[in-house]
Simulated scan of single mutants.
Amino acid sequence: MSYEKEALYYNSLSNKEVKCSLCPHNCNIKEDKLGLCRVRYNNNGILYSLSYGKTTALAVDPIEKKPLYHFYPNSTILSVGSFGCNLSCGFCQNYRIAHSQPDYKYISPELLCNIAEDAKQTGSVGVAFTYNEPSIWYEYIYDTAKLLKKNDIKTVLVTNGYIELEPLKDLIPYIDAMNIDVKAFTESFYKKNCKGKLNDVKRTVEFCSKKTHIEITTLLIPSENDSSKEITDLVSWISSINSDIPIHLSRYFPAFKFKQHPTPENTMYLAKEIASKYLAFVYMGNIPGIDNNTYCKICQNLVINRNNYEVNVRGIQNNSCKECGNPINIAM
């Protein structure tokens, strides 16, 4: 049985060639060829999604693992992924599914909605499309997210933010939260290491910040994107959008094609110090024992206590600090 589905967002050209307009690559795809994402295929002048419903990973995770620290803390979420990606990051941590086609199981939107409904009984708030890049799974996510919305089940995207504005506008009404990976803050990094463009990711962040809950993750890689200037540029830009947007600064470890040593812990602490001058909520990933609690930005009352994935929501009431009444940017 084939699970291929005609793709959205493409135009027919001459000689059965098509132009895909889902992501900023805007691939011109010849007949019997794939786009750069490796999941959109031109068959006789019709563009198809080859990954529709094809699921390579399905698990219930703590929501903090996405990472989302300000979206239904101390809950779980059903995490699901497929294969393929529209960037080519040499440091990819999920390269086995992003850059190949592993074994999969077909799960229809209706079945995934039913699985998510069952998971609610054990504390899950919804479905997170993650592991590989969800935006290239667009048709499946669009169909599924509409069903989830009807059943009051949350939809989360863990994404690189590399998507065109028109499809994003059509999808965003069904998305409840996003963790957007801003991989660096220079165009040269994106061009060299990801085969993409920073400005397109910035546009996604700026647009989505006004439409849904967002958090940002940046993996700090030694001598690539960890300079004090670049971190300052990154966090000052985020602050110009909304200084309450949480950022997760994650420590790099060797993966895929990148073999350099892990990010020094001192670099991570310096990055947090810089970020905290601009942003109210700065967290660090891949450093055991770090203080990743959430504090009120006004009175410094402990709002959420975190010990790895043991989470205690203790200082917030009606989305405000119990001590001083200041509104806290946390969806509950």
Score class of each variant (00 low, 15 high):
Leu220Gly: 01
Pro262Arg: 06
Met332His: 08
Thr217Gly: 03
Leu13Met: 14
Ala98Trp: 00
Ala255Gln: 13
Leu270Met: 11
Ile136Lys: 05
Gly84Asp: 00
Ile328Gln: 10
Cys296Gln: 12
Ile107Asn: 02
Tyr309Val: 11
Leu168Pro: 01
Phe281Asp: 08
Gln93Trp: 05
Phe91Val: 03
Glu187Val: 08
Ile245Leu: 05
Cys37Val: 00
Leu220Val: 03
His25Phe: 09
Asn293Ser: 15
Val235Gly: 07
Glu4Asp: 14
Asn329Val: 00
Lys154Asn: 05
Val60Thr: 13
Ser108Pro: 08
Val182Gln: 07
Asn28Leu: 06
Ile214Met: 05
Ile175Thr: 03
Lys210Val: 01
Glu215Lys: 12
Ala145Leu: 02
Gly45Met: 02
Asn305Pro: 00
Asn44Ser: 12
Phe253Ile: 10
Ile328Asp: 00
Cys85Ala: 06
Asn179Glu: 13
Val235Cys: 07
Phe185Cys: 06
Phe71Cys: 10
Leu249Ser: 11
Val313Ile: 15
Thr263Cys: 10
Asn305Ala: 12
Leu302Pro: 02
Glu166His: 07
Pro288Lys: 13
Ala59Tyr: 04
Gln93Phe: 13
Tyr106Asn: 05
Tyr174Asn: 11
Cys113Trp: 00
Ile231Thr: 12
Glu117Gln: 14
Ile290Tyr: 13
Arg306Pro: 09
Tyr104Ala: 01
Glu230Leu: 05
Ile97Ser: 13
Lys33Thr: 07
Leu87Gln: 14
Thr56Gly: 11
Leu22Asp: 10
Phe129Arg: 10
Gly161Cys: 10
Ile77Arg: 12
Tyr106Phe: 15
Val127Pro: 09
Pro62Trp: 10
Glu215Phe: 14
Ile46Tyr: 02
Thr159Cys: 09
Lys257Gln: 12
Ala119Gln: 10
Ala98Asn: 04
Gln93Arg: 06
Phe256Ser: 06
His213Cys: 00
Thr76Glu: 05
Gly315Thr: 11
Tyr309Asn: 14
Leu147Val: 01
Tyr283His: 10
Asp103Asn: 09
Leu165Thr: 09
Asn26Gly: 00
Lys183Leu: 04
Asp170Asn: 14
Ile216His: 04
Ala7Gly: 06
Ser209Glu: 02
Thr263Asp: 06
Phe258Glu: 04
Val303Ser: 04
Gly35Ala: 11
Tyr41Glu: 13
Leu168Thr: 10
Asn308Ile: 03
Pro134Thr: 09
